[in-house]
Design a protein around this nucleic acid. Structure first.
Lengths: 144, 144
DNA sequence: TATTGTTATACTCTATAACTATA
DNA sequence: TATAGTTATAGAGTATAACAATA
């Protein structure tokens, strides 16, 4: 009986535990900056797309519902880290762009996030990390 | 400017998206059985430890707070999938054990979960999967 | 008609503190 | 005093539906 693999070998279960562990420590590290993993992600994308990103596109990349992005952008905007600009080409869009302060805060946040990532993956040989990331990418973005 | 790696290369971010994708489809697949990822995990551990597991130990493995385990075991017990037995050696403990029905439901659930896992990792060469699992284990259970 | 952003709502998950009974 | 289980509660995350403005 029970000749099957234990729960602790299940990839979904391991993904969930690993993801939770990293997210917890990252959110804790970002606490002093008033950010969490999700708002950090949105800010990161805004900084990447310096000229402005559509909220719909933010939602697609971060994997959230557009309605959740509204709240996160509201929050970042209230703190003066991003701003919503009009899109001359399509007036339905609100282009999200980082402020100067947003770029500063992100730089610091990015440092903290990297620090936590490194801590969690310290036991993993660097040469295996790229393969790991590659598998993760395929599962996270099946289409691409 | 922005010479840094994009968010989509960040391991924590990828973990979160991958974990979310798998958890969503697994919970959906388990729907007809009245289970979700978390109750499935608890049931799986109960089936593995046929003679009974302490709720504290369940909480430690699944990575939940003991108070959350209470609710999950309540739910499984109400559905007749597990039962709580007294521990003769330590009367503080409530040993969680699967019922016959619990084992049956788990067998079916396990099949469905494996099906989803396979689907998500179909694009990954099998020989790379064990290495992937190994990294995941180290991040999920840093001590072990 | 289809799409972007938005509001509202409900449900699940997570985190904490406090209490009880046993050890 | 320490540990297992329990209850209660609040906060964060997730999922859906509906609506206005614009295309």
């Amino acid at each position: 009986m029970s000749s099957e693999r234990p729960l602790t070998d299940d990839l979904g279960f391991l993904l969930s535990r690993a993801s939770g562990a990293v997210a917890r420590s990252v959110s804790a590290a970002l606490g002093p900056l008033g950010l969490r993993v999700r708002s950090y992600s949105v800010l990161a994308l805004a900084v990447e797309h310096d000229t402005g990103v559509t909220q719909r596109s933010l939602a697609a990349v971060v994997g959230l519902d557009p309605s959740q992005v509204v709240a996160l952008v509201d929050e970042l905007q209230d703190r003066g880290l991003v701003e919503r600009a009009a899109d001359p080409n399509d007036r339905r869009n609100r282009l999200v762009r980082p402020t100067a302060e947003g770029r500063r805060v992100f730089a610091e946040a990015h440092r903290l996030v990297t620090e936590q990532d490194d801590r969690h993956f310290a036991q993993v040989p660097p040469e295996r990390l790229e393969a790991f990331r590659d598998v993760l990418r395929r599962v996270a973005f099946p289409g691409a």
